[in-house]
Design a protein around this nucleic acid. Structure first.
Lengths: 284, 284
DNA sequence: CGTCGAATTGAACACGTTCAAATCGTGTGG
DNA sequence: CCACACGATTTGAACGTGTTCAATTCGACG
């Protein structure tokens, strides 16, 4: 119970000041193992930068974009909207999952909500005939499994080894029954997710292959706080299923972008964005 | 084909309990209806490659699938998930808007949340070059404008004359700060919206034109709880922009469904669903 | 009856898919 | 250390679904 109180206080810090009651080491300590860190050296800084408040980088992109394009929102612009604040949900145990391991499955009863602390996760759905749709790629800070119905609407798998906070929904419900702030935070998370999903839908409905890939690259770089060069944790098939394309088209399009000099595909998983502004121009 | 056999055997060994070897046709039989195949011949290879690529999962999928309308959610079923309860948000004034009139506009500062009381509303976004994406069609009970950012991410217009409850966000914030129940209700609304948007995205990412139109018709009939015959409040262009198609394709597809005897297009806006079960079979 | 927007329909075209094959990369066994 | 196997990725060529272009029909309203 003391744990809940402390965690609840932490949540109060959402508004912007990070006078966090829980220190990062307190959060990560039970979860971090030498093995995970060794296998995935990048995760700690990413986890930290994700969990702590988000810096000026966003603002930079946002303002340059705003001046470039008119008042009308482009899709790319939408993708740069302020992300859900890196909110810690109180009370839970940290758990680990290996690469490719399932976190929860489409159709299962919802009993746990997760917050990703380190690593990368994909959520996806399978249609009856085997077609797959990747709903989203998740980065540290993201909350997964916040579902309205009784069942998870999608499955979640780690694309890397992952560390997560697992919060029983019963706990969450109980806490939020007495804590309006928690309710507001959950609402914020859900509605940011909604906005993100709508951006995704808009992309799928109206953008061509090049635009989709460009939007994906920029969005990914943005969310993972990468600079212009980074590793993709997902396969081409993942990307294709996220963008509503095939691996072939994704591969071709990346090659195409490379030919244009907009990106530099150092290795199949390693990408460097050479002219981010031009890529941005492709997104809508 | 030898490739497929091998993959099939792999699946058997993977699953363990399914000791027997499953042929592809055995696997696909329960999943692919003849109608789907006939109208959308392209999906078979996709299904096969997906299935061979992910053996273990398919088995799980198949078994749940076998249990008639089982726990595995198809897109069509997803659309039938319990809708957000027709929840009244307290405190607001009812306002009226004429057909086609704007309720709020993309990019405007969010100052009001609306609940639709009567009529039908479309929400949509415009891309920089004029492409339009209809995010959703709204029915009485739906809440609009519950946005996380400072700006509406989409515009809203009545497709009919509408009556709405207009609640200032300030009021909503104030109320929910002291009323956890309201917070939970808003969360429920937002997360149902999220799920709906994800269904939409899945449809746009992976369904063909016939499947999209069929899914739209069923979903619409469901939400407006019409029986099998009803009037569409939206234009073909609206439908096209919602489904990520063109008016031409929508029109052709409707004609096609009519030729198949699945629907009856009495007038351009009036539709009758003749074999709802078969339509359902087309959705995924 | 004439006009205008919405809807339908046909034909040519384009983009992305499908089919097919080659290449790369990694892990494994000799 | 090399040989081999397997999966992931890339690339080419044929194909198909949905788009684009173009023309016609339909329906509402003067």
């Amino acid at each position: 119970m003391a744990e809940h109180v402390r965690a609840t206080e932490t949540m109060g810090s959402d508004a912007g000041e990070h006078g966090g009651r829980l220190t990062l080491s307190e959060i990560l300590a039970p979860a971090l193992s030498p093995t995970v860190l060794e296998l995935n050296p990048g995760i700690l800084p990413r986890a930290i930068s994700r969990i702590t408040a988000r810096p000026a980088r966003l603002l930079r992109l946002r303002s340059t974009q705003a001046s470039a394009a008119g008042p009308l929102m482009t899709l790319a612009f939408a993708k740069f909207d302020p992300p859900p604040s890196p909110t810690l949900v109180p009370a839970g145990v940290s758990i680990r999952r290996a690469t490719g391991e399932e976190i929860f499955a489409q159709g299962e009863a919802v009993d746990t909500v997760y917050q990703l602390l380190a690593g990368a996760v994909r959520t996806y759905r399978l249609l009856g005939d085997g077609r797959r749709h990747v709903c989203d790629f998740h980065v540290p800070g993201d909350v997964l499994g916040l579902e309205p119905g009784g069942e998870y609407a999608c499955s979640a798998e780690g694309m890397t080894d992952v560390i997560m906070l697992a919060i029983p929904v019963a706990t969450l419900r109980r806490l939020s029954a007495h804590d309006p702030l928690l309710g507001q935070r959950l609402l914020s998370i859900a509605s940011h997710g909604l906005q993100r999903s709508q951006n995704h839908a808009t992309m799928l409905a109206r953008l061509g292959a090049v635009e989709r890939v460009a939007a994906f690259l920029i969005d990914f770089a943005q969310r993972f706080d990468a600079d212009d060069e980074f590793d993709l944790p997902m396969t081409r098939q993942d990307i294709a299923d996220y963008l509503g394309l095939t691996i072939h088209t994704v591969s071709r399009t990346l090659s195409h972008l490379q030919d244009q000099g907009l990106i530099d595909a150092r290795a199949s998983r390693r990408v460097r964005l050479r002219r981010q502004d031009e890529l941005l121009g492709l997104c809508a």
